[in-house]
């Protein structure tokens, strides 16, 4: 049978972006180790409601690690102690009875706290809007199998495309840089044949938009460790190279020289 845990929680509460925040200390007793971290917060919220305390707002949705909505700093680590795991997939069996758990929202200047543990990550969308797409208006596509893509390239593209946009890379970065997110978005498209025509324009636009909101990468590699999808740092190198190429390349010769 599953065990129950008694935990000491310190959870960040903040009314709004300009309000001062502080930790709420809660004793959470009898939490099942089979509960996910978010189900543990659900339980805490039910108890808070019984005590006439407004439940904690926290980001969550699909609870199966794919939508990228959830994300919080658990004991100083983005998404908690478990590697390659989003907060919703973190289970309480990874904690011990009597543990003190501190929960904070993502923190970065471009991720303002909306309330409690919920932050605004929309600058990530701005990066995609800047160029994270292949312009292929509906109806213009050739037959799918006309474009041959080596399996290795498709796999690399997929590795990059598996980014869930949770923002853990920014949250964990000592510089609050969004390199890993941007690189993942960029690599997804830049390694595909379909992505070539807009490759250099896309790279410039996305990198420069990223820099309007986020810090400068100093290659700590903390983002990769925090990433629930383990996006490799190599993609950042790939992005850096593409960015320099974008600045130097004579784009009208694209068909002659790769």
């Amino acid at each position: 049978m599953s065990k129950n845990l008694d935990l000491k929680l310190r959870i960040w509460r903040q009314d709004g972006p300009d309000a001062p925040g502080s930790f709420l200390d809660i004793e959470a007793k009898g939490i099942s180790e089979d509960a996910s971290f978010l189900e543990m917060l659900d339980t805490v919220n039910e108890r808070l409601l019984d005590d006439d305390v407004e439940p904690i707002n926290f980001p969550h949705d699909c609870r199966e690690g794919i939508c990228g909505t959830c994300g919080m700093m658990v004991n100083g680590r983005a998404h908690g102690p478990e590697k390659a795991t989003a907060t919703c997939q973190l289970h309480m069996r990874k904690f011990d009875d009597g543990d003190e758990i501190t929960v904070e929202p993502w923190r970065a200047a471009s991720f303002p706290v909306i309330k409690d543990l919920v932050v605004d990550r929309s600058p990530l969308d701005r990066i995609v809007e800047a160029g994270g797409f292949i312009s292929a208006p509906t109806g213009t596509a050739p037959d799918a199998n006309q474009i041959l893509i080596p399996k290795e390239a498709a796999e690399m593209s997929m590795d990059a495309a598996s980014c869930i946009g949770c923002g853990a890379c920014v949250a964990s970065c000592p510089n609050s840089a969004a390199q890993l997110f941007t690189a993942a978005k960029l690599t997804h498209l830049n390694v595909l044949p379909q992505g070539q025509p807009e490759r250099w324009k896309r790279t410039e636009a996305m990198v420069e938009t990223m820099e309007e909101y986020f810090g400068a990468c100093t290659n700590h590699g903390e983002c990769h460790e925090a990433c629930p999808k383990e996006i490799p740092l190599d993609f950042i190198a790939f992005m850096n190279r593409d960015y320099i190429k974008a600045k130097i390349k004579n784009r009208s010769l694209a068909s002659q020289i790769s």
């Binding site: 100083g76 000592p174 840089a177 810090g215 100093t218 700590h220 925090a226």
Partner: peptide, 23 residues
């Protein structure tokens, strides 16, 4: 640039990859 982009955590961040040299 990083300083203006960053906000510190109340509880000390627990670094995994960032090592003494990089920090």
């Amino acid at each position: 640039m990083s300083e203006t982009s960053n906000e510190r955590y109340e509880r000390k961040q627990d670094y995994i990859a960032a090592n003494f040299a990089s920090r």
